[in-house]
Computed example of a mutant assay.
Amino acid sequence: MNSYAVFLRGINVGGINIRMADLKEALKARPFSGVKTLLASGNVVLASELPPAKVKAEFEACLREAFGYDAWVVVLEAARVAELVAACPYPADDASTHTYLTLASDPDMLTELYDAGTGLDGAELTRLGPEAMAWLAPAGGTLDSPFSKLSAKPKYKATTTTRNLRTMVKVRDAAAGL
């Protein structure tokens, strides 16, 4: 049995509202066990015999069928989440900045985003692997930061999602308990 973290893109924002209790209930019919939801922003840990690509396909199908939501998720093995958190060179938060990890299901799209982001004024980005990068945003100004605006473009919607490092730590800890 493999432990996974699943990160949903774009729920409970922009009119797409899914209660985590309803999501957990819908996932019962899928080949998953130990399902736990974390926060209301679409973070799930679970166990499955399936490989990551099949977990992604099953999870997205569940979201479409149960909620009518054209879903995109990023699936990472729990051990990989722990490695990414450990590899992040930035603090979880300090007085002036917040640390985020952008996760991707398509490494080529993440490379494109990373390359475009490195040219932005004041952007501090670190590639953590083929599926993740870390970046800093000014405290209180995350959504207004040039990199946040870049990563919100529709072309990245189906393949990337972003989480605060503190959230990633919570997901790591929850997945370790599976």
Rank of each mutant, 00 (worst) to 15 (best):
I11D: 02
K56F: 00
R166H: 06
P31A: 10
K153R: 15
L23H: 07
Y90T: 01
S105Q: 10
L39V: 03
L178N: 06
A61I: 02
L27R: 12
T167M: 01
A152H: 13
A47V: 05
G177K: 14
L103I: 06
D70A: 12
A104L: 09
Y156P: 11
S145Q: 12
G68D: 13
G68V: 10
T97C: 06
K157F: 12
P51W: 01
G42S: 03
L101S: 04
G68W: 12
M109R: 14
P89T: 04
P31V: 06
I18K: 08
E65W: 14
D173C: 03
A82G: 05
G34D: 07
S3I: 01
A87Y: 02
V75E: 00
P154M: 10
V73M: 12
S151I: 13
L120W: 09
A123T: 05
L38A: 00
A95L: 08
T159C: 10
L110M: 06
V55M: 05
V13K: 05
V35C: 07
S105K: 10
A134H: 03
P154T: 10
L143Q: 12
A132I: 00
P107M: 01
T159E: 07
A95K: 07
Y4R: 04
M168I: 01
L63E: 04
V85M: 00
N43V: 05
A176G: 04
G15D: 02
L113K: 15
R9L: 10
N43D: 03
A61W: 06
R172D: 01
E83K: 13
T160K: 07
A174H: 01
L128K: 07
D173K: 07
R19E: 08
C62Y: 04
R172M: 01
D108V: 11
A26T: 08
A21S: 13
G177T: 14
T111P: 13
L110E: 11
G10A: 15
K28G: 09
R80M: 09
L76F: 03
G177A: 15
R80L: 12
V171R: 00
A21D: 14
S33K: 14
D173Y: 02
I16T: 13
F32N: 06
